[in-house]
Amino acid sequence: MLQKFLHYGRNFYVATGLGLLAWMTFFDANDLPTQIRNWWKVHELDRDARFYQERIKTIQTERQEILGNDQLREKFAREKYLMKRPEEDVFVIVDEKNEPLEK
């Protein structure tokens, strides 16, 4: 009789454990598919953050170069924003890829 009880008791705990595992894996608010989705989203956001950090460094370097030189600042304003003096016209010569020839 005791062996029969222990056998049923063991099956009860195994079944309860499997049920809890299934519940936590598929039905809980923090289930496995949600955790995988969240991990993937964090991975994408980290990659985007690295890209933007590199882009910020590049832009800061360009900004330092342009602001440090009056001729480059004037060239940048003329080409990028098409600024000009009142008595002149500005022409930007571009290649086949629509990029300025002079960089």
Rank of each mutant, 00 (worst) to 15 (best):
Arg10Glu: 08
Trp23Pro: 03
Gly9Val: 05
Leu2Trp: 14
Pro86Phe: 14
Gln60Cys: 02
Val92Ser: 02
Lys4Leu: 15
Glu65Ala: 01
Ile66Cys: 01
Arg47Asn: 12
Leu32Ile: 13
Lys41Tyr: 04
Glu74Phe: 10
Glu88Asp: 14
Asp48Arg: 12
Val94Leu: 09
Asn30Ala: 12
Gln53Thr: 07
Val92Asn: 02
Val14Leu: 08
Asn69Tyr: 00
Thr58Gln: 03
Ala29Gly: 12
Ile36Arg: 10
Arg73Gln: 08
Gly19Leu: 13
Phe76Lys: 04
Asn30Cys: 06
Pro100Cys: 00
Ile36Asp: 02
Asp46Ser: 11
Thr25Arg: 08
Asp70Gln: 04
Arg73Trp: 08
Gln71Cys: 01
Leu101Lys: 14
Pro86Tyr: 12
Thr61Gly: 02
Ile66Lys: 00
Trp23Val: 08
Leu6Arg: 08
Lys80Asp: 09
Met24Asp: 07
Phe26Leu: 11
Glu74His: 09
Thr16Gly: 07
Gln71Gly: 00
Met83Ala: 14
Arg85Phe: 15
Gln71Lys: 07
Asn11Phe: 04
Leu45Gly: 03
Phe76Leu: 03
Trp39Leu: 09
His7Asp: 11
Trp40Met: 05
Val14His: 03
Asp31Trp: 05
Leu18Val: 10
Lys4Cys: 12
Met24Phe: 14
Glu102Arg: 10
Asn11Lys: 09
Lys4Thr: 15
Lys80Ser: 12
Phe27Asp: 11
Val94Phe: 05
Lys41Ala: 13
Leu67Val: 01
Ile59Met: 02
Pro100Lys: 01
Gln71Val: 09
Lys4Phe: 15
Gln64Ser: 04
Gln60Lys: 02
Phe91Asp: 10
Ala49Thr: 09
Ala29Glu: 13
Gly9Arg: 03
Arg50Ala: 10
Arg73Ser: 07
Val90Gly: 07
Gln71Thr: 06
Asn30Glu: 11
Asp70Thr: 04
Glu88Leu: 12
Leu82Asp: 12
Ala22Cys: 11
Lys41Glu: 09
Ala77Ile: 08
Asn38Pro: 01
Val94Thr: 12
Lys97Val: 00
Pro100Gly: 00
Phe5Asp: 11
Gln3Tyr: 15
Phe76Ser: 04
Asn69Arg: 01
Thr58Met: 03
Leu20Met: 13
Trp23Ser: 06
Ala15Met: 06
Ala29Asp: 13
Ile56Cys: 01
Leu82Met: 14
Glu87Gln: 14
Val90Trp: 03
Lys103Gln: 11
Glu44Thr: 04
Tyr8Arg: 09
Gln53Trp: 01
Val90Asp: 06
Lys75Val: 02
Asn98Ile: 03
Glu54Ala: 05
Ile36Tyr: 05
Asp46Phe: 02
Gln60Pro: 00
Glu88Tyr: 10
Met24Lys: 07
Glu74Met: 13
Pro86Ala: 07
Glu96Asp: 10
Asp70Phe: 07
Pro33Glu: 04
